[in-house]
Design a protein around this nucleic acid. Sequence first.
DNA 1: AGCTTTTAGCTAACGGAGTTAGCCAGACCT
DNA 2: AGGTCTGGCTAACTCCGTTAGCTAAAAGCT
Lengths: 184, 184
Amino acid sequence: MPRAGLDRATVIAAAAAVADERGFSQLTMGLVAERLGVRTPSLYKHVESLAALQQGLAALAMNELSDALRDATQGYAGRDALAAAARAMRSYVVGHPGRYAATVGVTSDPEVDAAGARGIASLAAVLRGYAIDPADQTHALRTLRSTLHGFATLQGANGFQWNADTDQSFEWLIDFLDRGLRRS
Amino acid sequence: MPRAGLDRATVIAAAAAVADERGFSQLTMGLVAERLGVRTPSLYKHVESLAALQQGLAALAMNELSDALRDATQGYAGRDALAAAARAMRSYVVGHPGRYAATVGVTSDPEVDAAGARGIASLAAVLRGYAIDPADQTHALRTLRSTLHGFATLQGANGFQWNADTDQSFEWLIDFLDRGLRRS
DNA sequence: AGCTTTTAGCTAACGGAGTTAGCCAGACCT
DNA sequence: AGGTCTGGCTAACTCCGTTAGCTAAAAGCT
C-alpha cells in the first residue's frame, strides 16, 4: 500500500477544513484522519495531540487573518484603511468560522502570539491615520479590536436575533468608529 | 442511603460552579456529579444530556446577566446608564467566565433567546437616553453589544497581550461610546 | 543494483467521557 | 401498612484521544 505523504501542514489544513465545515467544537482526530484517507493513529506521526493540532490551527488562522489585514490596509489611510481592515476581518471570520474559533481561547502559544502581534500591528497602523493622543493609543486599539471581534463573533454565533440587514449594521459600525476616532 | 434531593436547578447551579472554576470547556458530567456527591448517571434523571446541561447553563447565565443589566441601569439615563450597563456586563463576564462562555455558541434555544432579549431590551433602554435616529437604532444597538461583548471576551481569553491597565482601557471605551452615540 | 536505516502508516489496546438499561430502596400517598 | 412512583445506583456500550509495537515503503549509502 502506497503512503499518503502527509506532513504537519497537510494535517493542519485538513483540520481547518473540518473546523470550518462542521464547527470548531466538532474538530476531531477521527474526522481529520477520514478526510485524509488515513487511520486516526497515523496523525500522531505529525501532530503531538489534539491540543497541539488546535494550536497549530490557531496559528494558521492568526497568520491568515494577519495577512488579510495587512493586504487589505496596504496603501490606504484614515477612514479607507479602517473600513478595509474591518471588512477584511469580518470577511475572514465569516468565511472561516472554525479557524477563527480556534484562535479564541488559546492560552499563550508563542506562535499564535507572534501571528496575533502582526495583526495588531496592522490595526495600530490604521490608527496612525487618526490624530490620537499617544497616551490613548492602547485604549483606542483595544476598543477597535474589541468592536471588530465582538461583531464578527456575534454574527458568527447567529447572535443577532432579528434579521435587519447585518451588512448595513456593519457599515454603520465602521462609520461610528471613524467618527469617534477622529475626535480622540 | 439517604437521597441527595437534586433537581434540575441544583444540577445547573453545580454546573455553573464547575464552569466558572475550571473553565467552560472542562465542564463535564463527572465533575458536576462529584460536586453534588452523586454518581454520573444520576444526573440524567434531571438533565437529558450534556448539551442540555450546557443550554440550561446558558439560560441561567443570560438571565443573570440580563437581571444585572436591568438592575444596574434602573434609574439612570444617558452616559450614566451607559457606564452602568457596561460595567455590569464586564463585571458579570469577569466574575462568571464559565457561565458567560456557555452563552456563546448556543444555537437558537428559545429560553436562551428569551433571556437574551431581556438583556437586549436593557441596552435598548440605554440608547433611549441618546437622540438616535430611529432608523439607526438597530445598528447602534448592535454596535454597542458587539463592543461590550468583544471587550469582555477578549479580556476573558487573556487576549490583551501587553499589560496596560485594562480597567483604564474599559473606561476609555465607555467614554468613546458615549461620545459617539451623542452624535448619532 | 543491493543493503541498511529510517519512518509513515497500520492494528491492537487502554482510559476517560457521555449515555442507556435495568435494578432497588427511599419518598409519597391513601 | 401497603402500593406506587422515582431518584439514585451498578453494569455496560460507544466514541474519542492516545500509546505501543509491527511492517513495509521510502530514502540513503556503497
